[in-house]
Design a binder for these strands. Structure first.
Length: 365
DNA sequence: GAGGCGTGGGT
DNA sequence: TACCCAAGCCT
């Protein structure tokens, strides 16, 4: 590991810290989670920002803090409501883990977000990055907060040719941060590295001529800034064929179903659907049969009104959208409900089912 | 360590 | 179009 960091010796650490932090204080974006250092709000923002763009997060963050201003408010909230607050953000286990963790903070830490690496890392959904981010930003503790930005920025500055796709590589960059971090302002230092990665030291075509730490950058000096970071890994996406139905009763209510509490889109709501294991041309009676055997729904499906394609990070759904009628006497349960369009607003639906419903509303016209 | 887990934007 | 990417974590 020390070998990867040989270029650390070439950096004037004080000068680097000063150039980086003064740029950050001058140029940092005005973001809602930067208005104060409330550990709870910092925490919420860091969870939302995992694998998610700043512009996407901003409105979600504001509404989330409005709905759940404190740890107590979030701890006491209904799960359907926290999922509704997260609807459209993706990676829904984040918010369920967050609620579980704030309950833990209330019970075990008297409502105070823990401020040691050991304790904070025990919280559900708080991994090495988030732990360092909260500790440094909310508490001013000099811990590394190594995310994708930091690995990219430091791989260039220190000319580190480690493959950042390997989980083990993160430790190399944590060691680098431990050497470089400014103990007078760990919060500004960590945020500055990420801000630099977001605004200047971007994945493609970095704006080196605008970079406040260009003179410290090994990759720029060697002209290899476009070759770094090294990142392998390819995407493999599986295709899944689904048939889903908008089943409406004579009072205009739709049948919806709650997904299982683990796995993909856990505990979100959906329209009744089945996976078509072996797609067969023109076999729509087969779909009726699957609705019966898999879902216990004895109904005759109507026409197909269209198809919805949705691309996840690891798989692709293609949904054939059916319409149909259902008896008003249908017996509801905790997982199956008949709801009006207005009532539907209380339930969190993943984007593919939102697309599906919009398609239905459009063809009604 | 590898793969599951969302979504929208950029090129 | 078909990738790649964005303030990761869990199993």
């Amino acid at each position: 590991m020390s070998n990867e960091l040989e270029n650390l010796n070439k950096i004037n650490i004080n000068s680097f810290q000063n150039d980086l932090i003064s740029w950050f204080k001058r140029e940092q974006r005005d973001l809602p989670w930067r208005k104060d250092q409330d550990p709870y709000k910092v925490w919420v923002s860091e969870i939302m920002l995992q694998q998610t763009r700043v512009d996407t997060v901003i409105p979600y963050f504001n509404r989330f803090i409005e709905w759940f201003p404190t740890i107590d408010d979030l701890a006491d909230a209904d799960e359907d409501k926290i999922l509704k607050a997260w609807e459209g953000l993706g990676y829904y286990s984040r918010v369920r883990n967050l609620q579980s963790a704030v309950r833990e903070v209330r019970e075990t830490y008297n409502g105070v977000v823990p401020y040691t690496p050991e304790e904070i890392s025990k919280l559900k959904g708080v991994g090495p990055y988030t732990a360092g981010a909260i500790l440094s930003i909310a508490y001013g503790i000099p811990e590394p907060a190594v995310d994708g930005n930091v690995m990219r920025v430091l791989s260039r500055i220190l000319s580190i040719w480690e493959d950042i796709a390997r989980p083990a590589s993160r430790k190399v960059f944590e060691q680098a941060v431990r050497k470089l971090i400014c103990h007078d302002d760990p919060s500004a230092f960590n945020q500055a590295l990420m801000e630099l990665g977001a605004l200047i030291c971007t994945p493609t075509s970095p704006a080196c001529l605008l970079c406040p730490v260009r003179e410290h950058c090994q990759a720029f000096e060697e002209g290899v800034q476009n070759e770094l970071p090294v990142k392998t890994k390819k995407t493999k996406t599986r295709h899944v064929q689904l048939a889903a139905a908008l089943l409406v009763d004579d009072r205009g209510r739709f049948l919806i179903h709650k997904r299982p509490d683990t796995g993909l889109l856990a505990n979100l709501w959906e329209f009744p659907n089945v996976e078509i294991e072996h797609p067969v041309e023109g076999e729509r009676g087969h779909v009726d049969e699957l609705f019966h055997t898999s879902l216990g729904l004895k109904i005759k499906l109507g026409k197909i009104i269209g198809q919805v394609e949705h691309v996840f990070s690891h798989l692709i759904w293609n949904i054939k959208v059916y319409v149909g009628k259902i008896n008003s006497e249908y017996e509801e349960s905790c997982d199956w409900k008949l709801v009006s369009i207005k009532e539907m607003e209380q339930y969190a639906f993943p984007v593919p089912y939102q697309k599906m419903f919009k398609m239905y509303l459009n063809q009604e016209k």
